[in-house]
C-alpha cells in the first residue's frame, strides 16, 4: 500500500464481467466427471453466463467526481466492483492505481458481538487504514456518532439508525485515494443527515477520485460534476453531469434550481 506517491487513476479497456451461473447440478463434480467420461454433450458442458458488464471503457484520473446513474439492474453496483478491483474483468483490462475504499454496504465487516469502539477499528482496517491511524481517529468518530457510552456496548444492542451513524462515522473519517460509494447511505434522522452530508462532502474533497452511484439527483449534484449512465451492462453515456441526467431522465429531467427549491419546500 505504498502507492501514495503515484498518480491515482482507473483505466479500463473493453472490460467485461461475465458471471457463470452454476446451478446445483453443474456446480457439482458429478456433471464434470461424467461429462468427461461420456464425451461432449453440448447442453452439459455449457454453463449459462450472465453478461453483467460489456465493453467498459473508462478512464478516470485524480480529481474525477463521477456520478453513476441507471435503472435497477443496469450494472451500477457491478461497475463499482469492477472499478474497485473486486471483479477482475473476464475479458478486457482494468488497471487501478491507488488505495481503494469501497463503501457499498455500511454493515459489511461489522461484528454484532463486539463493542462499537472495536468495530470502529476493524471497519477502518477493512478500509485499508492502519490500526494506529484508526486509534488516532476514534475520538473524532465517537464525537460525530453522538453515541457516547453506547460505544462500549456490543453492536447488537444498537438500533439500525445507531449502526448507520457508527458506520458513517468510520467511513467519513478515512483518507481514501479512490472512493467508491454505492447508494443507500442515508437511513438516519434528518438532523444527523445534514451533519453527515457535510462530512461526506469533506471526505469527497479529501479523496483523489470519486465514483458515486445514486438515484438522488440532489445528492449527485452535491458531490459530482460528471456522470456515467449505465444501461444493460453498458455505458450508454459518459459526460457532464447535467447532460447525462438530461438524457437519462428524459421528460422527468428538472433543472438543478427547481429540484433544490422543491427539496427546500419539502423539508420546511
Amino acid at each position: 500500500m505504498s502507492q501514495t506517491m503515484q498518480q491515482v487513476s482507473i483505466d479500463t479497456r473493453g472490460a467485461c464481467v461475465d458471471f457463470p451461473i452454476f446451478d446445483a447440478r453443474s456446480r457439482s463434480l458429478k456433471k464434470t466427471v461424467m461429462g468427461l467420461v461420456g464425451g461432449n454433450i453440448a447442453s452439459n458442458s455449457k454453463v449459462p453466463i450472465i453478461e453483467a458488464l460489456r465493453n467498459i471503457d473508462v478512464h478516470l484520473e485524480h480529481g474525477a467526481r463521477v456520478g453513476l446513474v441507471g435503472h435497477n439492474g443496469a450494472g451500477k453496483s457491478t461497475l463499482l466492483r469492477l472499478l474497485s478491483g473486486i471483479y477482475e474483468p473476464t475479458r478486457g483490462s482494468a488497471v487501478i492505481n491507488g488505495r481503494v475504499a469501497p463503501v457499498f454496504d455500511l454493515g459489511v465487516g461489522m461484528d454484532p458481538e463486539v463493542s462499537g469502539l472495536e468495530n470502529i477499528i476493524v471497519r477502518g482496517l477493512f478500509l485499508g487504514m492502519t490500526r494506529k491511524e484508526m486509534e488516532a481517529r476514534v475520538d473524532d468518530i465517537a464525537d460525530f456518532t453522538e453515541l457516547g457510552d453506547f460505544l462500549r456496548m456490543p453492536l447488537r444492542t444498537y438500533s439500525t439508525g445507531m449502526r448507520v451513524r457508527l458506520a458513517l462515522g468510520v467511513v467519513t473519517s478515512i483518507d481514501p485515494e479512490i472512493l467508491l460509494l454505492d447508494e443507500g447511505i442515508g437511513a438516519v434522522d434528518s438532523a444527523f443527515l445534514d451533519k453527515s452530508k457535510k462530512r461526506l462532502k469533506e471526505l469527497v474533497e479529501r479523496s483523489g477520485l470519486l465514483v458515486f452511484a445514486s438515484h438522488s439527483d440532489a445528492f449527485l449534484r452535491d458531490l459530482c460534476d460528471t456522470a456515467i449512465w449505465m444501461e444493460h451492462g453498458q455505458i450508454k453515456a459518459h459526460g457532464d453531469l447535467e447532460d447525462v441526467l438530461k438524457a437519462y431522465k428524459g421528460d422527468d429531467y428538472r433543472t438543478p434550481d427547481k429540484t433544490s427549491r422543491e427539496r427546500g419546500s419539502a423539508e420546511a
Binding site: R13, A237, G239, D240
Partner: peptide
C-alpha cells in the same frame, strides 16, 4: 442527446 459525449469518443 448530442451534448452527451458517447463512451467511445471519451475513450
Amino acid at each position: 442527446v448530442p451534448a452527451v459525449v458517447p463512451a467511445d469518443v471519451e475513450q
